[in-house]
Each structure stands twice: as structure tokens, then as C-alpha cells.
Amino acid sequence: MTRRRGFLLGFLVVALLVAGGLSYFASSSPDGLDTVARHGCQVSETGGGEHLDGTCIAQNAGEHAAAHSPLADYSVLGGKGTVGIAGVVGVLVTLALAGALFRVLGRRSPARQAERGDD
């Protein structure tokens, strides 16, 4: 295996481990923006989600148009304990999209003739 491929493969493995494994240990508390949006409201858990009482920005939030996507909320079909699978799918989809776009853009690059790779 060439050095370059070794490095890129290592990078991918790290991303897959983070999304597929470390994601189980992520905090489930609201993030910074979400915390601000909920400021002023009392949040109570209900069967279908969270209920907000009081006055806060998050009360204006609408339901997500893709809320019924099979991967919504980083789960597979809403199943418990599927965040890692959703994460791995996300990494691969992102890589496929970005990889294809950047390859196409690179082909039209003026820098293409500059160097023919080092491996």
C-alpha cells in the first residue's frame, strides 16, 4: 500500500470509529444554540417528544420537513441504539458526495498539470 493511501485509509477509519462508536458516548444535552433557543421555557418529556412551557425562541420551531426520514435524529427508523449505524451511513454518504464533487472540480483544476502525485 502506498503512503498516501495508507494515510487516507487511516483517516477514514478514524471517522468511521468516531461516528460508529464514539457517538454512543455523546452528550444528549441540548447544544449551545438549542440551549439559547429553549431559554425561558420549561421542558418536559412526553411520549412523542418534548413539551415546552413558557416563552422561548424554540417555541417558534416547526417540525422538520425530513422528520420522517429513515435516518432522522441519527437513528435508523427511530430504533434505540442505532446511532452508530446511522453515523457510519452518514460518513459514507458524506464521503461519496464530497469525494465525487471534489474529484470533478479537481479535474477542471488549473493545478492539475502541476504535479503528478507522489506515489
Binding site: R4, L8, F11, L12, V14, A15, L16, V18, A19, L22, S23, F25, A26, S27, S28, S29, D31, Y74, V83, G87, G90, V91, L92, T94, L95, L97, A98, G99, F102, R103, L105, G106, R108, S109, P110, A111, R112, A114, E115, R116, G117, D118
Partner: peptide, 26 residues
């Protein structure tokens, strides 16, 4: 386009996937 060649394009793809992964970690 000027910053992408056959060496940097795969790197850019992986960096994107890596950011997706790490953004999951609150």
C-alpha cells in the same frame, strides 16, 4: 478548483466525512 488536484481532492472528501463524524459528538 485551483486548490484541488488528485492529491488534495481525496483529502478534501475525507475531511468532509471527518467533520460529519465529529459533529455527532456532543
Amino acid at each position: 478548483r485551483a486548490d484541488l488536484d488528485e492529491r488534495t481532492a481525496p483529502m478534501a472528501g475525507l475531511v468532509t466525512a471527518f467533520v460529519f463524524a465529529v459533529q455527532m459528538i456532543n
